[in-house]
Simulated assay, not measured.
Amino acid sequence: MVRKLPPFAAVRAFEAEARHLSYTMVADKLCLSPSAISHQVRSLEEYLETKLFERRNNKMRLTLTGNAYARKMTSLLDAFEASTLDAINKASQSIRVLCTPGFAAR
Rank of each mutant, 00 (worst) to 15 (best):
K4G: 00
M1H: 10
C99W: 01
A27F: 12
Q93Y: 10
P101L: 01
L30V: 03
F103A: 11
L77M: 06
A105V: 03
S38P: 06
S92N: 10
T84W: 15
V11F: 02
A9T: 07
A79W: 04
T24D: 05
V41L: 00
Y47H: 00
G102R: 09
E15Q: 11
E54F: 15
S35M: 04
N67F: 09
R19A: 13
R61H: 10
H20L: 12
M60Y: 15
A10K: 00
L76M: 05
Y23E: 05
R71A: 13
G66A: 06
P101N: 02
A27Y: 12
K29M: 11
E15F: 10
Q93L: 15
Q40T: 05
L52K: 05
D78Y: 07
E46H: 02
L32M: 15
D86F: 14
E49L: 04
A9K: 08
L76E: 01
K72M: 06
T50I: 10
R55L: 08
A104V: 13
K29T: 11
A70I: 06
L77D: 03
A70H: 05
G102M: 09
T65R: 09
R71D: 10
N67Q: 07
K59E: 10
Y23A: 06
R61F: 06
D28M: 10
R61V: 05
A13M: 15
V11E: 02
F103K: 09
A10I: 00
L52Y: 01
V2H: 14
C99M: 11
H39G: 07
T74P: 04
P6R: 01
E15H: 09
A27Q: 10
A87N: 14
F14P: 03
A18Y: 03
A36D: 13
V2E: 14
T84G: 13
N89R: 12
P7F: 01
L44E: 00
A10V: 01
Q40C: 08
S38N: 14
N89H: 13
F14T: 00
R3M: 12
R71G: 06
V41I: 00
M73T: 03
T50Y: 04
R55P: 05
L77F: 04
V26C: 02
E17T: 05
S92H: 08
L64D: 15
S92T: 12
Q93D: 15
S83Q: 05
L62S: 04
D86P: 04
K29H: 10
A91M: 15
Y47T: 00
M1S: 11
T74V: 08
L76T: 03
L85C: 01
R56C: 14
S33R: 11
A13L: 11
G102F: 08
L30I: 02
A104E: 12
A10Y: 00
A82N: 04
V97A: 12
L44Y: 00
P7C: 03
E46G: 02
R55A: 13
S92M: 11
N58R: 14
P7K: 01
R56P: 13
A68D: 12
R55D: 08
